[in-house]
């Protein structure tokens, strides 16, 4: 078997999710090549070549891939991937965007968001917002798969010595172009891979109040998250949403503040190792999954939390 992993990156660094996807590829078994497509990605290719278990890194470095437009990436990956038994990428928004195009162009099914590998053709994935776990078997000769990074422990980032090969395949479908982006800038850890996540919900009341959480987050070295209600209300940007339709996180510690615990929110965080909930409603469903629950008004509890943390950290 031969597996092609499409690296996730932002043209400046390799995303950790790529290492989780390589781990999924190892669980399938076989030679693992990594495709790095983007613009000015030499350093990223080198980083990918050092990842444990990688055989070869293929590089498609061209402006056509600079903004990860699905139309162009889809054609590239379908062409490069057709010689492989499996094509894998992370189930981030880039992978979710281009990968189904790859599957359609190859006329094969896609298995989305796998959390476990049972065998080379059988995979486990959550459905119904994680309220059910399905084991599915794929019959196509090429398996196109997106991987939920939290399902697999990452391979080591260092120690490998894969060869690096430049591809000169340029696919510009001419269907789409990049207009602009608004990237939320933050010095905090990446939400998807942070060890600690602090999330606020509708109970925070406004965006200004999130500053309280930011102070706690900075004290703990945590990433910041939010419920859909907090994002919809405009308290915080969309990329902070945790849940069925937002980011899936599984940190060592997840702190939910003023979040009721709707199933769609739980779908994004219930695999966290330790869950803390602070909510004034003792009936809030979040307490059913919390290891430590505190029934309290968050406007009193959060400043106290900060003070107590300062004593021990």
């Amino acid at each position: 078997m031969s597996i092609l992993v499409i690296a996730e990156h932002d043209n400046s660094s390799l995303k950790q999710a790529t290492l989780n996807v390589v781990a999924a590829a190892k669980a399938i078994g076989g030679d693992i090549d990594v495709l790095v497509a983007g613009e000015n990605v030499g350093a990223i290719a080198e980083a990918a070549a050092k990842a444990e278990g990688v055989n070869k890194v293929l590089v498609a470095d061209n402006a056509a891939y600079g903004h990860f437009l699905a139309e162009n990436l889809g054609e590239l990956v379908a062409e490069v991937g057709k010689g492989y038994s499996h094509i894998l990428t992370s189930a981030g928004t880039t992978g979710k965007d281009f990968m189904p195009r790859v599957a359609a162009l190859l006329d094969v099914a896609q298995v989305s968001d796998i959390i476990r590998v049972e065998s080379a053709d059988t995979f486990v994935r959550p459905i119904y917002a994680g309220n059910a776990i399905a084991t599915v078997k794929a019959s196509d000769s090429i398996k196109v798969i997106t991987v939920r990074p939290t399902g697999f422990d990452p391979v080591a980032a260092e120690g490998g010595s894969a060869s690096v090969e430049q591809l000169d395949v340029v696919k510009d479908a001419g269907l789409s172009s990049f207009v602009g982006e608004e990237k939320a800038k933050s010095d905090r850890p990446d939400l998807a891979s942070a060890g600690i996540v602090i999330s606020g919900g509708r109970g925070m009341q406004n965006g200004e109040n999130f500053k309280m959480l930011e102070q706690v987050a900075d004290l703990m070295g945590a990433a910041m998250g939010a419920s859909r209600a907090a994002v919809d209300a405009g308290f915080v940007p969309n990329d902070m949403q945790v849940g069925q339709t937002g980011k899936i996180v599984a940190p060592q510690l997840y702190v939910a503040i003023g979040i009721s615990g709707a199933i769609q929110h739980l779908a994004g965080m219930s695999d966290s190792k330790v869950i803390v909930a602070i909510n004034k409603d003792e009936e809030a469903p979040i307490f059913q999954v919390a290891d430590y629950g505190l029934v309290a008004d968050l406007f009193e509890a959060v400043p106290q939390f900060e003070e107590e943390l300062k004593k021990v950290l």
Binding site: T93, E182, K183, D239
Partner: peptide
């Protein structure tokens, strides 16, 4: 305008 992992991204499509 698309909701992507890092924030928002706008594309123009034919």
């Amino acid at each position: 305008t698309r909701e992507v992992d890092g924030g928002l991204m706008t594309v123009a499509l034919n």
